[in-house]
Amino acid sequence: MHVLILGAGFSGAAIAKTLRPLAQTVTGTTRSEEKAARLSLQGITPLIFDGETVSPALMAAMARTTHLIQSIAPGKAGDPLMRPGQPALAELMPELAWAGYLSTVGVYGDHGGAWVDEETPLHPVSERSQERVEAEEQWLSFGKATGVPVAVLRLSGIYGPGRNGLRNLAEGTARRLVKPGQVFNRIRVEDIAGATQFLIEHGLAGIYNVTDDEPAPPQDVVAEAARLMGIDPPPEIPFETAELSPMARSFYGENKRVSNAKLKAAGYTFAYPTYRQSLAALWEAGNWG
């Protein structure tokens, strides 16, 4: 297995760590030399990719790739591998046996707190979520046209070692914003990696929500982290009066409970099914910072 991860950031690096023991090669792209050096330390062969120009080195990596994970956000120009003028993907990757596209549960839009699953009609609110819908369609169409199994992984709010409520509290950046009725799903980064490995090993294609069991109000997660640390949680702040960036505020415009039943029915068992279990594991292991 020759793995290529386009956009080896927080999720991509976790996927690389999980797949490394199974693969002959694991290559990951990044935009900067500094980040490339970090990938090397993690056992990932780094390549610079700006999302536009496919270098000869990247082209060579693509030529041997059997398993692809695409984690780069599309942007207004569209998916970097599907844009007009790019070489045909089937020609760039003649050995491709499976592809995974990392998307977002933001494609569902707002459902007033109701449950959604992979069959729920999409009503993306933000422009970035609309771009994700288009990219999903392109990747699924590529799979149908070529016969390559393509899985779309719709991810909820990502957290894990180094990116979590415990660290936010320690750094003094945690806030308990309260918007009545608002809930979010979350996903531990190791479960993104585990789900990816599971889908690869079973050759599964299609759309899967990769998300936890327990959509919950964001202020409850902060309170649980504070309880584990033995400190007082920060005071509650009404959403209406909170100072937020336009992007942060837009997240609160979407309220839904995302089901992971399809992935479970396929046979995947989540390592961290709830934020309570996950935060407790991070705190006990001491790898939250």
Rank of each mutant, 00 (worst) to 15 (best):
A23S: 14
D50I: 05
V178N: 08
F49S: 03
T53L: 02
G9M: 06
R64N: 09
L177A: 08
E34A: 15
T65P: 09
P74E: 10
G7K: 10
P124I: 09
A271C: 01
R83N: 02
T66R: 10
I48C: 03
N287K: 08
H67K: 00
H2V: 10
D220C: 14
E33Y: 15
A242C: 11
A8C: 15
G289N: 15
E52G: 08
A63L: 03
P215W: 08
A57Q: 13
A266E: 13
P87S: 00
W98Y: 00
I187F: 09
R31K: 07
T30I: 02
T18W: 07
N255M: 09
Q197S: 13
M93V: 05
T104S: 13
L102A: 07
L204V: 07
R154Q: 13
W288R: 07
A285Y: 07
H67N: 05
E243W: 07
F142I: 03
G112S: 07
A225W: 06
Q182M: 14
T53E: 10
K179Y: 11
P121A: 08
A248V: 14
R186F: 10
T30G: 00
L204F: 04
T104K: 03
A77R: 06
T53I: 09
H2R: 08
P180S: 05
Y272R: 13
P121F: 04
A36S: 06
L4V: 11
S11R: 10
A261I: 05
M247G: 13
A151L: 03
L39S: 00
Y268T: 07
G106P: 07
A265P: 12
L204I: 06
F270V: 02
I48Q: 12
L244V: 10
G113S: 09
P74R: 01
Y272L: 13
E131W: 08
D191N: 12
S11T: 15
S245Y: 07
G203D: 01
G9H: 02
Y101A: 04
S40A: 08
G181D: 10
G160K: 15
A73V: 12
E243A: 09
G9Q: 11
Y275M: 06
Q197E: 14
D220Q: 15
G157A: 11
T27W: 01
E34P: 12
T66K: 06
Q70G: 02
N209A: 06
Y272I: 15
Q182N: 14
Q138R: 10
A216S: 06
L166M: 11
T104C: 08
I5S: 01
L153E: 09
N255I: 12
K144F: 11
P94T: 04
I207Q: 04
D110W: 02
L155E: 09
G85L: 05
V133K: 04
E137T: 15
P246R: 05
D220L: 13
A114C: 14
V221Y: 01
M247D: 12
F184D: 10
F270C: 04
F239D: 11
V3F: 09
V54G: 00
T146S: 01
A13E: 06
P180W: 07
A205L: 07
P46Y: 03
L6K: 02
G112K: 08
G143L: 01
S245H: 11
H67T: 12
G157E: 11
D117T: 00
H2P: 03
N168T: 12
T18F: 08
A37D: 13
Q86Y: 02
E131F: 05
A205Y: 12
R249E: 01
